[in-house]
Structure formats: structure tokens, C-alpha cells
């Protein structure tokens, strides 16, 4: 009773100091609790995305980088895999390959070049507009639409890949033809285009503007078009037929290939085919990679909890309260 009387008297008189102490104490309790909630949510999201992607094909290297790039559209840039790998999987008849090209971005959001199979595989629904049908079309995730304040009928421009790449291609203006319904996944923060559109951004494919004759310029019926004043390229109904790709499409790049096997047997056979370490590609199980990452995060969290617990239970020096 006496302790409570003193405590309330102290709180009433030193309310500012007490408020700071209460806030600090609340923060000390809140941070581990918030971390726990955050980690649990992250774990659930990470694992569900990983578990929903049976197999992932990509260049040999960091499995984590490959997974983060293809599933979560992170900044990681794994070495590209050639499109012939996609054709090989198609030809094998054991799985459906879905290439993803995640090398570019627009307004801070990753541009994901892929095929229509991706939308079926992820069960993505449109909340507005239509799906991809023409070269240059873009379908944006719900978060992108909200953040950029754009929707069907608007356009977005791909960001230059490298400001210092002087002979790089111009950014591509892409009309937004559809907006996806929210999924609470990385798909909400992606700009989806056909993989051929991604190749156009990369400069593998391009179109040609109609040339203007000197006579048309001289008599004022046309202006001189010059690449020097063109800020970006645009695919229009007038020039779409002129767009073409140079080289063998089998050599064209994808960041990774999502492989959806027909059944467990097909998955096992496919995994066996890519066990050979001499191959330039690897077939991984994203679920296992993500699980390994989550396990590591939780090991670190456990260590931090132990350290925090020791610090809280054993303060560096005993507190002495002296009243005079």
C-alpha cells in the first residue's frame, strides 16, 4: 500500500520523467513483440510463395538470389538463362515452363516479362481492363496502381537500366491495359508485360519509324524525325508491325523459368536431369530455399532473444534508490 502510495505520488509529481520511462519500457517490450509478429508474417508470406512454386530453373549460382529474383522480384540479377531451356522443357512434356524476365523496372516497380501461363499459374484476376494481348501492353499490380495513381488508359515508361550506358536503348512507353486484383503477394508490386516486350526494352527487339523524305520536310508537310529528340520509344498500331527481333530466339534471355511439373514423377525426373554439376543451369525447389532462409533468420532471432533476455535479467550495475 505504501509502495503504491509512493509510486502514484512520484508519477503525479514527475509525470514527464515517468512518461519517458513508461514509453521506454513499452518500447523495450514492444520491439521484441513487433519483431515476432513481423517475422511470423514474413515467414508465412515467404513460405507460402515458395511452397506455391514447385520448381525454378535458372543459371548456376546463388539459389537464394535466383529465388528472390524470380519469386519476389527483388533487385538481385542472376545470370540469365537462355530461352532454349524453356523449349527443352516444353519438348520434354513433363512440365509447363513459365519464363520470367525481371531485369527492368518502372517507377521503382519491377517489370516482369512473362507469358500468359503465369497469370493462370498464380491465379491472378483482373480488377480492371484486359490481359496482355499486344506487344507493349502492361498489366499492373494493385499496389502499383495505387502508388502511381494510374489505371487502364494511362501509360508508364520503363526506367533506364543504366544512366551511364550511353548506347543503351531508349525507355519504352507501355500502355496500361489492365489492373490486377490485390493478392497480398509480390505480384501486387509488379508491372507485367509479355516477355517479348521485355526483350524490346532490352534492345533485342525494336521497330522502325517511317522515314520522312527531304521533299516532305522542304514543303512543310512533314517534320524531320530524329533519334536525337526521341525521349522514348512507343509501340503504336502504326509501328507495331515494324517491330522485330534480331538473332535466334532460343538465345534470348530470361531471368528464370518457373517449372510446373505435371506430377511428382515428372518433378523427380526433371530434378534428376539437372543434377549434373557441369550444366550451366540448375533446377531448384524454391520452397526449400526459402525454408532455409527462414530457419537462418529464426536462428539469429533466437540468439538475439537470448542476448536481450540476459541483458534484461542482469543489468550492468545494480540500481540504488536513495531518498533523503
Amino acid at each position: 500500500m505504501n509502495a503504491l502510495y509512493l509510486a502514484f505520488a512520484y508519477l503525479r509529481y514527475h509525470w514527464g520523467r515517468s512518461l519517458v520511462l513508461v514509453l521506454v519500457a513499452a518500447l523495450i517490450l514492444f520491439v521484441p513483440a513487433a519483431t515476432q509478429v513481423l517475422l511470423s508474417t514474413s515467414e508465412r508470406v515467404l513460405l507460402s510463395r515458395g511452397a506455391a512454386t514447385p520448381l525454378l530453373l535458372g543459371s548456376r549460382g546463388s539459389q537464394l538470389d535466383l529465388t528472390m529474383s524470380a519469386l519476389y522480384f527483388s533487385e538481385e540479377r542472376p545470370d540469365p538463362v537462355a530461352m532454349r531451356e524453356v523449349e527443352d522443357i516444353w519438348d520434354g512434356g513433363l512440365a509447363v515452363p513459365i519464363p520470367v524476365h525481371t531485369a527492368f523496372s518502372s517507377g521503382g516497380f519491377r517489370i516482369v516479362g512473362t507469358t500468359l501461363d503465369y497469370f493462370d499459374f498464380r491465379r491472378l484476376k483482373l480488377s480492371e481492363g484486359r490481359g496482355l494481348s499486344l506487344l507493349g501492353d502492361a498489366v499492373i499490380g494493385a499496389d502499383v496502381a495505387k502508388a502511381m495513381g494510374r489505371g487502364v488508359g494511362d501509360a508508364l515508361v520503363s526506367s533506364p537500366e543504366n544512366l551511364f550506358d550511353l548506347d543503351g536503348v531508349y525507355p519504352l512507353e507501355m500502355p496500361i491495359v489492365g489492373v490486377l486484383a490485390p493478392t497480398n503477394s509480390p505480384d501486387d508490386q509488379a508491372v507485367f508485360v509479355d516477355i517479348k516486350t521485355a526483350w524490346v526494352i532490352q534492345g533485342i527487339g525494336h521497330g522502325h519509324e517511317d522515314a520522312v523524305t527531304a521533299a516532305e520536310v522542304a514543303d512543310g508537310t512533314a517534320a524531320l524525325s530524329s533519334a536525337a529528340v526521341l525521349q522514348y520509344q512507343r509501340i503504336t498500331p502504326d509501328n507495331i508491325q515494324s517491330f522485330h527481333f534480331h538473332g535466334n530466339q532460343d538465345d534470348f534471355p530470361a531471368s528464370a523459368v518457373i517449372v510446373v511439373p505435371n506430377d511428382t514423377r515428372a518433378a523427380t525426373i526433371l530434378k534428376g536431369r539437372y543434377l549434373e554439376t557441369g550444366k550451366p543451369t540448375q533446377l531448384i525447389e524454391p520452397g526449400a530455399v526459402v525454408q532455409s532462409l527462414v530457419d537462418r533468420i529464426f536462428r539469429i532471432k533466437t540468439l538475439l532473444d537470448v542476448v536481450t533476455g540476459i541483458k534484461l535479467w542482469r543489468p550492468s550495475r545494480p540500481s540504488v534508490w536513495w531518498c533523503s
Binding site: 509512493l6 505520488a9 512520484y10 503525479r12 509529481y13 514527475h14 531518498c323 533523503s324
Partner: peptide, 10 residues
């Protein structure tokens, strides 16, 4: 003397 108590409370 407790500084957070009034003279009467002290």
C-alpha cells in the same frame, strides 16, 4: 525529504 510529496505529505 521526498521531493515528490508536499510538505503536509512529508
Amino acid at each position: 525529504m521526498l521531493d515528490y510529496l508536499s510538505a503536509r505529505q512529508n
